[in-house]
C-alpha cells in the first residue's frame, strides 16, 4: 500500500511539473501579446534610453528567443531581476511578500477550518433549530458579500466607529482585521460544506450502529460523523489554502499590508515581465502542491479511495 502511495506521489509530481511548465508557457506568450511595455509610462524616457533599457533586459530580441532564455535561466533557479524595483531580484521580492501574506494566510486558514468545521457540525447536530438557522443566515451572508465590502465594513466599524484596532496593517494589532476579513468567506463556505455533509452522514445506518454500541453522543458526532463528513471539506481546503497564503489583493490594499497579492497586481499593470512570471510560477506551484496534498489527505481520511 505504501509503495503504491509513493508511486502515486511521484506520478503526480511529474504531472505537476508538466502543468507548471504549461502555465509558464501560456503566461509568457499571453503577457507578451498584451500591448504596452515596462517603459511606457507618462514620463517616458527618450527612445534611445528605452531602446537601451530594452536591450539590457533582452526585450529587443524575438519573443521565442526571450522565452528560451527565460526557461534556461529558470532551470538554474534564476527568476531574473525586477524591472520596476530597480536592483532587486524577483525571487527576493516574492519571498518578502510571501512571508507577510503566508503568516496572515496561515492564521486565517486555520481559523476558517477550525471554526468552519465546528459551526457546520453544530448546525447539523441541531438541525432546524435556531442555532442552525442563525449559523446558516450568517454563513450565507459572508459567502455572498464580496471581500472588499467585508473589509471596508470592518474598517468602518472597528477602526472608525469603535477604534479598537488600527487601520494600518503594519503596526502591532494591525493584522487582526485583515486576518478576519481573509477568513470570513472560506470559514462560511466550510461551515456550509460541513453542515450539508454532516446532515448526510448523520442519516447513515452506521451512525445508528454506533449508537447501538453504546457510543456516547459526543463521540458519535466527532469520531464517526465528522470524520466521514470531512471529505468534501478537504477537497475545498487544499486550493483555498493556496489562495489564502498568496494573499488577497483587496484585503492587502484596504489594510495596507505589504503582501504578495499587492505585488502581483502592480506587476501586471507595470508590465514588470519577470515579476509577473515569478508570481505566476509561485502561485501555480503552490496550487499544484496543495491540490496534491489534499488528494493525499483524502486517501488518509477515506480508506475506500483508490489512488491508482
Amino acid at each position: 500500500m505504501d509503495s503504491k502511495l509513493a508511486l502515486y506521489i511521484v506520478k503526480r509530481l511529474l504531472l505537476a511539473i508538466f502543468t507548471v511548465f504549461l502555465i509558464i508557457t501560456i503566461t509568457f506568450f499571453v503577457m507578451k501579446a498584451i500591448p504596452g511595455g515596462p517603459f511606457l509610462s507618462e514620463k517616458s524616457p527618450s527612445p534611445e534610453v528605452t531602446a537601451a533599457l530594452e536591450a539590457k533586459y533582452g526585450l529587443d530580441k524575438p519573443v521565442f528567443e526571450q522565452y528560451i532564455t527565460y526557461l534556461k535561466d529558470l532551470l538554474r533557479g534564476d527568476f531574473g531581476p525586477s524591472i520596476k524595483n530597480r536592483g532587486r531580484q524577483v525571487i527576493d521580492l516574492i519571498m518578502e511578500g510571501f512571508a507577510v501574506s503566508a503568516k496572515n494566510g496561515l492564521i486565517a486558514a486555520c481559523l476558517a477550518i477550525v471554526i468552519g468545521l465546528v459551526l457546520g457540525a453544530l448546525a447539523a447536530v441541531f438541525h432546524d433549530s435556531w442555532i442552525d438557522k442563525t449559523i446558516m443566515v450568517l454563513s450565507t451572508a459572508f459567502v455572498a458579500i464580496p471581500s472588499f465590502v467585508v473589509a471596508t465594513l470592518l474598517l468602518l466599524i472597528f477602526c472608525i466607529t469603535f477604534p479598537i484596532f488600527p487601520a494600518n496593517g503594519n503596526v502591532s494589532g494591525g493584522l487582526v482585521l485583515p486576518i478576519i476579513s481573509l477568513s470570513l468567506s472560506p470559514m462560511s463556505y466550510i461551515t456550509r460544506l460541513t453542515r450539508s455533509s454532516m446532515l448526510d452522514v448523520l442519516g447513515q445506518d452506521y451512525i445508528r450502529t454506533a449508537r447501538a454500541k453504546g457510543v456516547s453522543n459526543t463521540k458519535v458526532i466527532f469520531k464517526h460523523a465528522l470524520k466521514n463528513a470531512v471529505t468534501p471539506v478537504i477537497t475545498y481546503v487544499g486550493p483555498m489554502i493556496a489562495y489564502i497564503l498568496t494573499g488577497s489583493l483587496v484585503v492587502e490594499k484596504v489594510f495596507a499590508v505589504p503582501g504578495l497579492g499587492d505585488f502581483f497586481f502592480s506587476s501586471i499593470t507595470n508590465r514588470d515581465y519577470p515579476m509577473v512570471m515569478g508570481t505566476t510560477i509561485f502561485l501555480a506551484t503552490l496550487m499544484v502542491i496543495m491540490t496534491l496534498l489534499s488528494d493525499i489527505c483524502y486517501k488518509i481520511f477515506d480508506p475506500r479511495v483508490d489512488l491508482s
Binding site: 445506518d205 452506521y206 445508528r208 450502529t209 454500541k213 453504546g214 457510543v215 470524520k227 477515506d302
Partner: peptide, 24 residues
Amino acid sequence: FQDPYSSLDPRMTVSDIIGEPLDV
C-alpha cells in the same frame, strides 16, 4: 442491522468496528 453495506463505518477497520463496543 438490515443493510450490511451502510451499517458499518467506512473509515474503520474490522478490528475497530468490533473493538469499539469493547472500548465503550
